[in-house]
């Protein structure tokens, strides 16, 4: 290749890289600007927000949050919302991770007649949309008197086909079955083998899946607003509080609304920024999609 030709080739690549870089920056701006404006507006007063759009933070954050938390007009209590969302999200995450590990381990380690059928079943039900079962689910729960309770929001997490599938793939690729054999020879019981040997070895998969399960349950709006039929204030989750705040006609203070929304997404963004590396790896590995 002559030098001139080579130069034009690298120059072409460089211009292409620059164009791509600009496109990426634009997309980044589209992703970030709404969130940035949200946070900025949470620190500004109502009059300022109405007056103009600004990218410089104001000094009203404390007042907005105080107003939001103390004025009973807003029917908003971040602490109650955080508490309820945390109870549901942590409970559901712990259950779904533990039982998914158990199921996946059973499917990989033991050879039994229905193993293939069970796995096929799990694959098939991964595709059933939530909405399809929800009518029957709610009617059933009301019959059992379990509406207005966190049980239907936490216990069903025991069955999480997508997580079982992911952990099974992980076990298949990186769990040596000889270890189970060795543990047996040493006189270790099956459940103890699972708890003390297999679970520590599944840590990477567990970490990724816990993050997803937690975020998904934290963000869940559909299930809680369906099951918590009476909308008791001390039972509201964070997304429900936001939707109530938003549809409240009496609110005329934008600063307070922005502060509320900012409070609701802050924990998720913090978790994300701390764990972004794992999260992106996790998406690449399993493709968790609602």
């Amino acid at each position: 290749m002559s030098t001139a030709k080579k130069d034009s080739y690298t120059a072409k690549l460089r211009t292409k890289s620059i164009i791509i870089f600009i496109v990426c920056v634009l997309l980044t701006l589209i992703c970030l600007v709404p969130i940035y404006i949200l946070i900025i507006n949470a620190t500004r007063s109502h009059v300022d927000i109405i007056g103009s759009v600004s990218f410089i933070p104001g000094d009203q954050l404390v007042r907005n949050v105080k107003e939001l938390m103390t004025n009973s007009l807003y029917k908003f209590d971040a602490l109650v919302g955080f508490k309820n969302s945390a109870i549901i999200a942590i409970g559901a995450t712990v259950l779904s991770i533990f039982f998914s590990c158990l199921t996946a381990y059973g499917l990989v380690v033991y050879d039994f007649k229905l193993r293939g059928a069970a796995f096929t079943f799990i694959l098939a039900v991964m595709m059933v949309p939530m909405q399809v079962t929800s009518v029957g689910f709610l009617q059933f729960m009301i019959k059992l008197g379990l509406n207005d309770s966190f049980i239907p929001l936490i216990v069903p997490a025991i069955q999480a086909p997508a997580i079982v599938f992911f952990i099974r793939q992980y076990l298949k690729s990186s769990f040596p079955l000889d270890i189970v054999e060795a543990a047996r020879i040493d006189g270790c019981g099956e459940f103890r083998t699972f708890l003390t040997i297999a679970i520590p070895m599944m840590k990477p998969a567990i970490a990724v899946q816990s993050i997803f399960a937690f975020v998904q349950n934290w963000n869940n709006f559909y299930m809680p607003s369906m099951i918590l039929t009476s909308r008791k204030f001390n039972q509201l989750t964070m997304p429900m509080m936001i939707s109530a705040l938003k549809s409240n006609d009496k609110i005329a203070d934008y600063g307070v609304i922005y502060a509320g929304i900012a409070l609701s997404i802050l924990p998720v963004i913090v978790i994300y920024l701390v764990l972004s590396r794992f999260i992106i790896e996790g998406v690449a590995l399993g493709g968790v999609k609602e």
């Binding site: 158990l102 059973g106 039994f112 399809v132 009518v135 029957g136 216990v155 069955q159 099956e190």
Partner: peptide, 24 residues
């Protein structure tokens, strides 16, 4: 043990998903 390990998943599935589906 295989059956014992996968039992909780299927019990909960039948109770909280399959029956609601049939119920629908």
């Amino acid at each position: 043990y295989g059956y014992i390990f996968i039992l909780p998943f299927f019990l909960v599935y039948f109770f909280f998903q399959l029956w609601p589906l049939i119920n629908t």
